[in-house]
Simulated scan of single mutants.
Amino acid sequence: MTSSLDDTSLDTPRLLLRRWHDTDLDGLAGINAQPEVMRYIHDGRTLSRAATAERLAAYRRHWDEHGFGLYAVQLKATGELTGFTGLAVPTFLPEIMPAVEIGWRLGRAHWGRGLATEAAQAVVRHSRTALGLRRLVSIHVVGNEASARVMVKLGMTLDRETVQPDTGRRVRVYAMDL
């Protein structure tokens, strides 16, 4: 369902998915500095605060360019930033283009509580009803079974296994028609 905050916010029983605020930088930088969180992201390295600021600016540009993007995910009960969930264009994997990817990243303290699935389900519904998308993909580095479980819970199925060109890491692409 759409929140009353603005037309790009979504809410679930426990979460608010919203556009990024300048005040999110420190929380996101803390998440991106966690080795456990980042081990399956890109080349597996953590990100500095400066690198996180660059990513945050890129997330905002993506929204402006495409009309959709990655949402900041906030716990309703506390207002804490848990990470992100949302949509991106996966240009890092040219063989599957054109495509729209659904993805997520949560801080370690928020794992194992169903939050990634809850947030991703809201994004899938929004993708179908408000954005009119017909297909979503999701990509994970082989070994990231927790992420694969979220993909399966969303109703996605394995489409292919391939190699990410810029890192050489094996990845699995899951897909679903909407």
Results as ranks from 00 to 15, higher is better:
141 V>L: 13
102 I>R: 03
96 I>K: 04
105 R>H: 10
143 G>D: 03
133 L>K: 02
130 A>Y: 14
161 E>C: 06
84 F>A: 11
79 G>R: 10
171 V>F: 00
165 P>M: 07
127 S>M: 01
115 L>D: 07
148 A>K: 06
82 T>M: 13
112 G>V: 04
99 A>D: 09
146 A>H: 08
107 G>R: 01
83 G>P: 14
94 P>Y: 11
147 S>L: 03
98 P>M: 13
134 R>Y: 15
174 Y>A: 06
175 A>F: 15
174 Y>T: 08
83 G>Y: 11
113 R>Y: 15
159 D>Y: 07
78 T>I: 12
90 P>R: 03
175 A>Q: 15
168 G>E: 06
101 E>T: 00
147 S>D: 03
97 M>H: 08
155 G>P: 09
127 S>G: 05
153 K>F: 10
169 R>S: 05
95 E>Y: 05
133 L>E: 02
113 R>S: 10
162 T>F: 14
116 A>Q: 06
155 G>Q: 07
155 G>F: 11
104 W>D: 15
94 P>N: 12
140 H>A: 07
153 K>L: 10
131 L>Y: 09
154 L>A: 02
143 G>P: 01
169 R>H: 08
128 R>P: 09
175 A>R: 15
170 R>M: 11
160 R>G: 03
79 G>C: 09
93 L>N: 08
111 W>C: 10
132 G>F: 13
174 Y>E: 11
123 V>P: 12
130 A>I: 09
167 T>F: 15
79 G>K: 10
164 Q>D: 08
